[in-house]
């Protein structure tokens, strides 16, 4: 009897009950809603590509593919070409990648390879993350009023004495590729550092212990064991950083000088696709010029999509645990 009473009590107090028809209906509609939004994500990306591509296509018959290989942008005569912008985008991103990549990977090694006490490691990591939090337009402002005056004497010294090297063949008259690439490298550094850190951290601890057990010094272990093991992830980090640099707009629009030239000189002004869009779009004619800009946007979209997808695939393929099904 006592047992029975106990059971009754439990049954009376429990919260469990089968769902009512209302609950089931609510459940079904909620699930439907979430699935709709999942589909919407896919459609959103497709729609972005479709919409920009569609506007670009209206410009294609008039501008053709020579748009990509000519260098005049003249809205009064309806002549458009973006070769200098394509060159500037790739060149500035490449310069930023060299610098940002070097610093980013070095910092990733510094943070992950037990150089620092834990607390300082965290502080350094937070500082690097905050670098990424500063809006690019603030970097642009800083670049104009702090960085350019700072590097100008140095840049002109380079031109004076090393002007025969094509990279320094012009004077830095103010804005130009060098300050733009410097700011760009600061902006991609956190991405590269973060992804490389993940790659380095994913290496099992035993690998390093084995290297130390063989009698390697710290740097022999890092350069011959750790970095080669993480090389896939680090390469992916570089590709992702490159992708970020390609699409970065404001710092370049403010610092690159917006001049349609194709030059090797890092001290000369140049232009990029994103900067062209930022500077020209607000005042563009509604007709062919807007379509031409959409065409340029489409080119930028395709370049960044390819680079970013490549980077994501490399990171997923090479990071252990990144490709688990």
């Amino acid at each position: 009897m006592a047992d029975n009473k106990f059971l009754d009590n439990v049954a009376g107090r429990t919260l469990s009950k089968p769902p009512t028809p209302g609950d089931i209906f609510f459940d079904k509609s909620f699930r439907f809603l979430t699935r709709t939004f999942t589909w919407a994500t896919i459609f959103l990306l497709a729609f972005i590509v479709y919409k920009i591509g569609g506007h670009a296509l209206t410009a294609l018959p008039e501008l053709g593919f020579k748009f990509l290989f000519t260098s005049d942008w003249n809205s009064s005569q309806n002549i458009y070409g973006i070769l200098p912008q394509i060159w500037g985008t790739l060149y500035s991103s490449f310069l930023a990648l060299i610098l940002g990549g070097f610093f980013g990977i070095t910092i990733a090694i510094f943070i992950t390879q037990d150089f620092l006490p834990y607390q300082i490691e965290i502080i350094l990591k937070n500082i690097i993350e905050l670098l990424a939090a500063i809006p690019s337009v603030v970097y642009g402002l800083w670049g104009i009023y702090v960085l350019v005056p700072l590097i100008r004497p140095f840049a002109n010294f380079l031109h004076e004495y090393l002007g025969w090297i094509p990279f320094f063949s012009t004077r830095l008259s103010g804005l130009g590729l060098l300050p733009a690439a410097l700011v760009l490298s600061i902006m991609i550094l956190p991405t590269i550092a973060a992804v490389s850190q993940d790659a380095l951290k994913a290496i099992p601890h035993k690998t390093k212990e084995a290297a130390f057990g063989m009698g390697t010094t710290r740097w022999e272990a890092i350069l011959r064991v750790m970095v080669p093991t993480a090389s896939g992830g680090i390469f992916g980090a570089l590709v992702l950083g490159f992708g970020r640099a390609l699409g970065e707009t404001m710092a370049l629009a403010m610092l690159v000088g917006s001049m349609s030239t194709i030059t090797l000189s890092v001290l000369s002004p140049a232009d990029t696709i994103a900067a062209l869009l930022a500077n020209t779009f607000p005042e563009a004619d509604a007709g062919l010029e807007t379509s031409a800009l959409m065409y340029a946007a489409c080119v930028l979209l395709l370049i960044t999509l390819i680079v970013n997808i490549a980077g994501a695939v490399i990171v997923a393929k090479t990071t252990p645990g990144g490709n688990k099904k």
């Binding site: 999942t38 589909w39 994500t41 896919i42 959103l44 990306l45 972005i48 919409k51 920009i52 506007h55 992702l240 992708g243 970020r244 390609l246 699409g247 970065e248 707009t249 994103a274 869009l277 930022a278 779009f281 800009l293 959409m294 946007a297 930028l300 979209l301 960044t304 999509l305 970013n308 997808i309 980077g311 994501a312």
Partner: peptide, 22 residues
């Protein structure tokens, strides 16, 4: 969808502007 979202995180911000303009 996950792949699309990851791709969209790398979308240049100016492209979002061009899309919203269109």
């Amino acid at each position: 969808a996950r792949f699309c979202a990851k791709t969209m995180t790398g979308l240049p911000s100016i492209i979002a502007g061009v899309f919203a303009y269109a």
